[in-house]
Simulated scan of single mutants.
Amino acid sequence: MITDLLSIAALVGSGIVAGVLFAVALSVLPALFAMPADRYVYTHQLVGRRWDPTMPILVLSSMIIDVVLAVLTRAEPALLFATAAVLLLGVSVVSHFCNVPINRVVKALDPDEVPPDWRDPRPLWRRWHLLRTALALLGVTVNAVAVVLG
């Protein structure tokens, strides 16, 4: 019974993470790339206000649930839950060490005074974001397979 509830939580959590990151990649990123620097900085600051601490908590709690399921379930699903946990850890690592530092730099800028020699972080941010999106999509897929096999 507890593994059934945890399996649902793992699917919902990892599904929300994958869905949010996919939506950003599909819609938000192209919009941000279409903006001039000052609008991009302003919009990035607005869009980023509610992500912390919601997304880190969601990613890490989903990862912990996967670890617990890896311990509580039989061999084949356990390996899949462990794999999903590693994939979600990858999402967290990429976010924390790659995207968040870029976000801090953008948040510190005044949109009305973007320096002329400003180095546009969007291409680098997009690469890291697409990596964590792929990891999240793989994570929810592996969780789904684990639940079906469990």
Rank of each mutant, 00 (worst) to 15 (best):
L6H: 12
L32Y: 05
H44P: 00
L124S: 11
H96S: 13
V106S: 13
A37S: 15
I2A: 15
M55E: 07
I8F: 13
D112M: 07
T3I: 12
V100F: 12
L149P: 00
L46I: 01
F81Q: 11
I65P: 01
H96R: 12
L130Y: 08
R132P: 07
A10R: 03
S61Q: 07
M35N: 09
T73A: 08
P77A: 12
L138T: 04
S27H: 05
R104K: 15
L29E: 11
D4S: 14
D66G: 14
V68T: 10
A146W: 05
L135T: 10
V145D: 01
D66S: 10
R50H: 09
E76Y: 11
G48Q: 02
V93G: 08
W51Y: 08
P111W: 04
F97W: 13
L58D: 11
A144P: 00
P116N: 00
H129E: 08
V59M: 07
W128T: 03
I8A: 14
A25Y: 08
D66M: 05
A146H: 06
T43S: 14
A84Q: 11
M1K: 09
P116Y: 00
I64W: 05
A78L: 08
V94R: 01
A70M: 09
A82K: 08
G13M: 09
V67D: 02
G15D: 10
N99T: 13
L138M: 14
L79G: 15
Y42G: 01
V148W: 14
H44A: 09
V145Y: 02
I65C: 06
D110G: 08
V20E: 07
P56G: 12
